[in-house]
């Protein structure tokens, strides 16, 4: 099927009396307002994802979004695409089924850190290993937001959560390192405040043939910053002030430490055949 190119959005649209937000054609407006709390970064990351989808110029019908469970996992519920809100941790295998059954689709997984890396961690490493041609966007808010602020696999060491009231004894994952070690062929990290870089990264990731992963640091004002006595705006400022953009940085130096400076950028972007391509070749033999 030929892909009908959409016109990139016009920025000099005539000012109608009731102009529309430029992303409205991709949002289920009848479901707005969304559930995300005031100041929650999920909405910003979601918005960047929609901008990227628009910017690709690819027919919207050729996209599908899959989410797991969590605040971030509500993303699939607001996008005006064929979209799937699945079970906790299982967005990636659901997306894998879609992609392998219809490789012409661009499948985006939009979910949270708990969903993708605790309960769904096994699926993540295996999809990365296979170089499954899907785009995985992880909103890392350092906590389980939806269930009220329990410790996550990304919660900083000694940070407080409702289940680590005296501080988190464990250490968080270095997600880009994990992704690269597992075989992901596109890996990047940004924060929600870097929305232009983020949008570009999403666009690149969608265009990338193979498993692409973008970690996006984002505030959870209700269940993370407040409990740890951080002002949300201060955390967002840290995202800008205490971060260093360094493409292809050594993955083992990507631990999140705002005192030292958190490294952002693109850490991996290589070509490798994808399972759907290989299978298509085998079928033709």
């Amino acid at each position: 099927m030929a892909i009908a190119k959409r016109q990139p959005k016009s920025t000099s649209a005539p000012l109608s009396p009731d102009p529309k937000h430029p992303l409205e054609d991709l949002i289920r407006m009848e479901r707005i307002p969304h559930i995300w709390c005031p100041g929650c970064g999920v909405g910003t990351v979601f918005s960047a994802c929609l901008s990227a989808i628009q910017q690709t110029g690819i027919d919207y019908r050729k996209f599908s979004m899959v989410s797991g469970i969590g605040c971030s996992g509500r993303g699939a519920g607001y996008v005006r695409l064929d979209s799937f809100h699945t079970t906790h941790g299982r967005a990636i295998p659901f997306a894998t089924g879609i992609k392998m059954a219809d490789p012409s689709l661009n499948v985006i997984v939009f979910s949270g850190d708990g969903d993708l890396f605790a309960i769904g961690g096994n699926h993540f490493i295996h999809a990365a290993r296979r170089n499954m041609d899907i785009t995985v966007i992880c909103v890392n808010n350092f906590i389980y937001g939806m269930t009220g602020g329990q410790v996550a696999a990304t919660t900083p060491h000694m940070a407080k959560s409702s289940t680590t009231p005296f501080g988190n004894p464990d250490s968080p994952f270095n997600l880009p390192l994990l992704a690269i070690a597992s075989g992901a062929t596109y890996v990047a990290r940004w924060t929600m405040i870097h929305s232009r870089d983020l949008t570009l990264a999403f666009e690149e990731a969608i265009g990338h043939r193979g498993f692409s992963f973008i970690e996006v640091l984002s505030p959870c004002p209700i269940n993370y910053t407040r409990r740890n006595k951080i002002k949300t705006m201060d955390m967002v400022r840290q995202f800008h002030n205490n971060t260093i953009i360094k493409n292809h940085a050594n993955p083992s130096e990507l631990d999140i430490d705002f005192q030292k400076g958190v490294v952002l950028g693109k850490f991996m972007d290589i070509d490798k055949p994808t399972p759907d391509e290989i299978l298509a070749k085998l079928r033709n033999q």
Partner: peptide, 30 residues
């Protein structure tokens, strides 16, 4: 493969059944 179909061995049974639901929504019988 000879049927134009897709076989995939997933990482566990949760992934196996979840993948067939995703596939079903592309129109496949799974």
């Amino acid at each position: 493969p000879d049927q134009g179909g897709t076989f995939i061995q997933m990482e566990d049974e949760i992934a196996a059944i979840t993948s067939i639901l995703g596939a079903a929504w592309t129109g496949a019988k799974s």
